[in-house]
Simulated assay, not measured.
Amino acid sequence: MSAAQRPRVPGRMAAAAVLGVAALLAGCETTNMRMGSSEAKTVATGSAAGAANANASDALERCESPLGTVSLIENQQAGWYTILRDQYRLPPTANLLRLLVQQSNCFVVVERGAAGMNAMTRERALMQSGEMRQGSQFGQGQVVASDYGLSPEIVFQNNNAGGASASLGGLVGGRAGGLLAVIGGSLNTKEASALLTLIDNRSGVQVAASEGSASKTDFGAMGQLMGGSGGARMGGYSNTAEGKVIAAAFMDAFNQMVISLRNYKAQTVRGQGLGGGGRLGVDGAAPPAQTSAPRAATGAQAGVAMPLRDAQARLNALGYNTGTPDGAMGQRTAAALRAFQKDKGLPQSGRLDTATADALAQ
């Protein structure tokens, strides 16, 4: 066979390969970064700044004005948190709740996390050391109280993983309260139900509880996520199916809570009142009046006719410098009291006794 008669297959194959590579390269041209991609979002999206928000989910319930301050409390020693962090590679659930709560304008979020509190302590230490410039205003008495506490808790469950479901549930031990998100489902479905509880920090009374749920059916088997390779693929709430369904359950539970809080009515106990023994009395129990601690005497009940703060203000007006009246007995206040007592011919005890209070009141 002559050279002219030989088939030219290799050349044609090479040309086809070149065309294929060119096509692939052409398909790779559109690789520009896209900000705000809908594929990378959860229901917790956008931002919040004070009472303003941007690009928040339309499904989020909102309040006309805040109902109080709230702190997010997450037990990082719990079994559910270990699973969330080590197997799902997800960030703290408090991060999601902070955004949802502030965007709703139902509560003002105050910092109580370890990192945030450490940062505040560090700044105060710098202020006390004298290193900060004048006017930095990092003195005491500026931290806002947390009226309520919202604590998340998650229970993971995989109905198709056999013993894995029982072992994961055993890590949590069926604890009550906080946030409960149960995740399970079939080969291609994941579901999450969430329970949120709101606690009054002053009294310890549960103010509200709510349940929410979410489901997603377009991703693979739950069992694959329990292995090492599955865990290594996990990331944030926005780029994992597990994170998205958990975020959706959180929002649904929070929405249900807001709806109930709009019609909130405080619970009352007839008879002894809240915490006074209850209506389900135990036979032979002592009456609450006999078991409660006596209140500390103040003012005239303690034999002193004038509160210390008022005494400090009076001493300042008379020229005895006590500093800013704060109701605390410091060295400056004691020195001012002794000077006043000396001028009035009273025993120089440096304490606000009845005779000194009477003299200041004249």
Rank of each mutant, 00 (worst) to 15 (best):
P10V: 11
A54W: 07
L25E: 15
P307D: 06
G174V: 04
G116A: 13
C28D: 13
V110K: 05
G68I: 06
G220D: 10
R133K: 08
R262N: 14
R122S: 13
L195Y: 10
N118H: 13
N188R: 11
E29F: 12
T189C: 04
G135L: 00
V143Y: 11
Q348K: 06
G173K: 01
A286Y: 05
D252C: 03
L196R: 00
A14R: 07
A115E: 12
G204Q: 02
S229G: 10
E191K: 07
E123A: 13
A164C: 04
G230D: 11
V205C: 04
G223K: 07
R85K: 14
L187G: 12
F138H: 14
L187N: 12
G113T: 13
A78Y: 06
P307W: 03
V172E: 11
P152W: 01
S104M: 00
D310K: 01
A166C: 00
G27Q: 10
Q134T: 09
A285Y: 05
N188D: 12
A26K: 01
S203Y: 04
S193L: 09
Q142L: 14
T45H: 00
A52T: 08
L179I: 12
V269K: 02
A335I: 00
F254V: 04
L25K: 14
S104Q: 01
A192T: 10
R175G: 08
A26Y: 15
L308I: 13
D58V: 04
